[in-house]
Computed example of a mutant assay.
Amino acid sequence: MVMVPGMQDDDFEERAAILEFDGGLPREWAENLARLATSPRPGAYLPERWETIVSDAHRLVDGHWRRLEAQGLGPSDIRELIRLIDGRAIVAVGMGDITLRMPAGNKVKVFMRPRIGQPPVWQEGRRAA
């Protein structure tokens, strides 16, 4: 595919507008999802893994942005979390954790560890003391 100058910017703006107006997302969330969806795949990720990350971000934000925002979390606070979802079903978003369903049906939690002045650290498994 040949990229036309400004094409990626136009695609980003269109996607952000669709997510905001048709999808009902606040502008900040819409822009972050659109940026992720229109960004070139980082070389460290296989194409399938990158598609999973983009899909997981959309599922998390689309279904749970209100709950995340109520906890004081914004798009920059969930970047690390998105990589941990790994295509699993999002069952619930709690206060400082999310519950995921494994392919076999069992559930696992991903916990948030807040950090002062920095995005939180997300860790799968048991809550760290």
Rank of each mutant, 00 (worst) to 15 (best):
G6Y: 06
G6E: 06
G6W: 08
M7G: 06
M7K: 07
Q8I: 14
Q8E: 10
Q8P: 05
D9R: 12
D9A: 10
D9S: 08
D10K: 09
D10N: 07
D10M: 07
D10F: 04
F12I: 05
F12P: 05
F12L: 14
F12W: 08
F12K: 12
E13A: 13
E14M: 11
E14R: 13
E14L: 12
R15H: 08
R15Y: 05
A16K: 00
A16R: 00
A16L: 01
A16M: 03
A17V: 00
I18H: 13
I18N: 14
L19K: 02
E20K: 03
E20V: 03
F21A: 14
F21D: 14
F21H: 15
F21Y: 15
D22M: 15
D22Q: 15
D22A: 15
D22V: 15
G23E: 10
G23N: 11
G23Q: 12
G23T: 15
G24Q: 15
G24S: 15
G24V: 14
G24F: 13
L25V: 15
L25K: 11
L25C: 11
P26E: 11
P26A: 08
R27E: 13
R27A: 11
R27Y: 03
R27M: 08
R27G: 06
E28Q: 13
E28D: 14
W29R: 05
W29T: 08
W29E: 08
W29G: 03
E31K: 03
N32T: 05
N32S: 08
L33Q: 03
L33Y: 01
A34K: 00
A34W: 02
A34E: 02
A34T: 02
A34Q: 01
A34C: 01
R35C: 01
R35Q: 04
R35S: 06
R35M: 03
R35T: 02
L36W: 01
L36M: 12
L36S: 09
A37C: 03
A37E: 09
A37Q: 09
A37F: 02
A37L: 07
T38I: 06
T38W: 06
S39T: 10
S39G: 08
P40L: 04
P40M: 04
P40Y: 05
R41P: 00
R41T: 04
R41N: 00
R41A: 02
R41C: 02
P42I: 03
G43K: 01
G43M: 01
A44E: 07
A44L: 06
A44I: 09
Y45V: 07
Y45A: 06
Y45W: 06
L46R: 12
L46D: 12
P47Y: 04
P47D: 04
E48L: 13
E48C: 07
E48T: 12
R49P: 03
R49D: 14
R49H: 10
R49S: 12
R49Y: 09
R49G: 07
W50N: 11
W50V: 11
W50H: 12
E51P: 04
E51I: 10
T52E: 12
T52C: 01
V54K: 09
V54H: 03
V54P: 05
S55W: 11
S55A: 12
S55Y: 09
S55C: 08
S55E: 13
D56C: 06
D56Y: 00
